[in-house]
Each structure stands twice: as structure tokens, then as C-alpha cells.
Simulated scan of single mutants.
Amino acid sequence: MNPKTRSMIGADVVKEVLATAAKLGYHYDTAAGSLRSGTSHMVGFVVPNIGSPVFAPMLAGLSKRLKRESYSVITVEVGNTTAGELELVSELSSRRMDGLILATAHRQDPLVTYCVDNGISAVLVNRAEEHSRLSAAVTNDLEAMRLAVDHLVSLGHRKIGHIAGPQDLSTGYLRLAGFRLAQAAHGLDTDKAFIEEAASFDRQGGHTAALRLLDRIPDLTAIAVASDLLALGAYDALRQRGLRCPEDVSIVGQNDMPFIDLVSPPMTTVRVDFEEMGATAAELLLQTMSRQDQPLRNIVLSPSLVVRSSTQQVTNSRRPHSGPDIAASPANDVGGTSVPPRKPVRRNGPLKSGNYGG
């Protein structure tokens, strides 16, 4: 009855046993089997916000890879409180999860400490710690922001602002670092006046941060934003101030989350392959579960720029604007020009600045 051991006996015997089991209405008792084997063939996927569009492709990628090894996946939303995270992960552990894929990591993370101290097989995905204690599958955030700034500079923009994500998360921290490095490489202003940190990676956070940025730098011509959700909030802020995207202010997002090509204007963004990231995290977890002393591996996937309609050549002055834009509605232009990504960069060893995030 066990698919993993059927190859040990003849195919005709397997067929006869399965037919007899079906006739008798027999079903394999997974709970009883886990007591005997010590494994449940269940993996927990722990996310901070199940409503975020980036987690669906990530879940698809990791589920496909784990299914090939007969593992099932349980997705759990833990919110953004440390106490809530620890309580739910403790419960998952008590239910005999064989391993965890954590999309919740902070740069210094108590949940990682809990997993390490309790011998729980776990890996990180999309975010990582500042100092590696678990293997991780992430994207190159420094490179992602360089692509965004290079694109804006190529269009003639010189007054470029940045809406950063929370700095206790690797994605927010490294994308801000990438923005500063890219600005400096082009001889542009890296003053903190051009940078506004959002309270959270969501649309409201982007809206509030964009308003503050526009108040401080009224002649801003472009904004490189740390995520697509934050960028949607920036769209809202421009509309509120009677400004147009991209005629008055160009915007570049990060992630290329599902349906971001359907907003108005379709968003220029930096693509992260979240399905590949999920599959990579699953592979790392399988290696970790098979061998507890498995060396740490940090696999960094390369991002790519996708040019759509939210960016254009800088103009000399803003033109009067008589009506509001629509921040998120179906658009006629749903295409985009994709700059081909480079092959994924796969690196082993400790996680260093620039090698984690997402």
C-alpha cells in the first residue's frame, strides 16, 4: 500500500493487493502509519499573510516538488507577532510535521531560534536572517533594485525617490541598500530625504509613505518602490495629489506579483520567480530532513526587469492634470517587455549582504 516501497515486489502482486483493498474499502491510515514510522509526510508552509499574492505561486512550486516525494503541505498564517508565530509553530511541531518552510523570517528571528533549539527541520524562503542559521531560497535584492534604478536613469530621471519596506525584514533592508548603491553608481543623490520607509509591505503603507515623500520632494520625477503592493499605494498617492503616472511620476515596483499587469497603468516591475523559489525551498527542506547535519545552503535567484507602462522618458515639467487616475482597473495594454533573466545564482555557505531577501 506504500507507493515508496511498491517497487520491492512484483507489479502483478501490487495490482492484486490494490484491487483487494479497493474491494474491501480499505484506506491507508496515515496517522497510524506515522506512529509506526516516526514520520507524517506532512510539511508546514508558514506565511505572515495568506492574502499576499506572492505566496500562491510559491506554494505551487513547493507543493509540486514535495508531492513527488509523497509529502502533503499545510499552509498556516501566523500574522506578524512573535508570540503568535511561536505558538502556531509549536502546535505544528506537536502534530508531527516532518519539516517547515518559513516565509516569515526577520533579520534577527526568534522563530528560527526556536526551530534550531528544538531540532526542527526548517528552511527559509523569500526572506532570510542577517546571519544564516537555516538554509534559504531567496532573490538578489541588491541586483533587483539596481535594475529598477538603471531603468529609470536610462529614461533621463535624476530625482528618484525610494519607498522602502520595513528595515527589520531582509527584503526591506537590502532593497534600500541596493537603491543607495545604484544611486551612488550613477552619481545621484543618496540623501535620506529621497527615502521613505513604509510601516508594512502593503498598499496602505505605500500610500502613506508616498504622500510623505511627495511632500518632502515635490519635484520628484520617479519612485523605485520595494514591492508591487507598496507601488499600488504610490499610485493612490499620485492620484490623490492630482499627479499622473507615468507622465508626471514614473514608478517601478518589485516582485511582478500576479495581475500587476492589469492595473492602470500596467506596472513596470522587477520579476521574482516565486514558483521556482518555492520549488528550491522544498528541495532544500528535503535535503535537511534527510540529513540533520546537512551544510547550510543559500540559493539566490536572479531577478529580471519587466518594462510596462508605468515608466517613461522624463519630461521638463509637469502638465496640469484635470482628473484622477484609476489606481487598479483593467487596462487595454496588459503586455510588457521583459529583460531576460540571467541564470539563477546558486551559492553555498554563509549568507552575506546582498545574498538574501525576497
Rank of each mutant, 00 (worst) to 15 (best):
S93Q: 14
S70W: 13
E276H: 12
R107V: 15
S135K: 03
L296W: 05
A198W: 11
L102E: 07
Y235I: 03
F201K: 09
T39L: 13
T269N: 10
L284T: 06
D256R: 02
L152F: 01
A83F: 02
E130R: 04
F194K: 06
G178S: 05
S37C: 08
G44V: 01
R68Y: 10
V46H: 01
R239C: 05
A56H: 06
R175S: 08
L92W: 10
V263D: 02
H27P: 00
V123R: 00
G354E: 07
H131W: 12
D202A: 12
L176N: 04
L284S: 08
L305Y: 09
G205S: 12
R347N: 11
G119D: 10
E276Y: 09
T288R: 13
V345W: 12
A148M: 11
I195Q: 08
D333Y: 09
L262C: 12
G233F: 08
I101C: 07
S317P: 00
D236G: 00
S227P: 05
E91H: 13
T269C: 12
R347S: 13
R291Y: 10
A182M: 11
H27E: 12
P344T: 13
T104N: 15
S135N: 06
P110C: 09
I50K: 01
G161N: 06
D273V: 14
E16H: 10
A281S: 06
L305N: 04
L102F: 08
A237W: 09
S264K: 00
D333L: 09
S322K: 04
S310V: 08
T113M: 00
T171F: 02
R271T: 15
L351Y: 01
V54G: 02
V149R: 00
T30D: 14
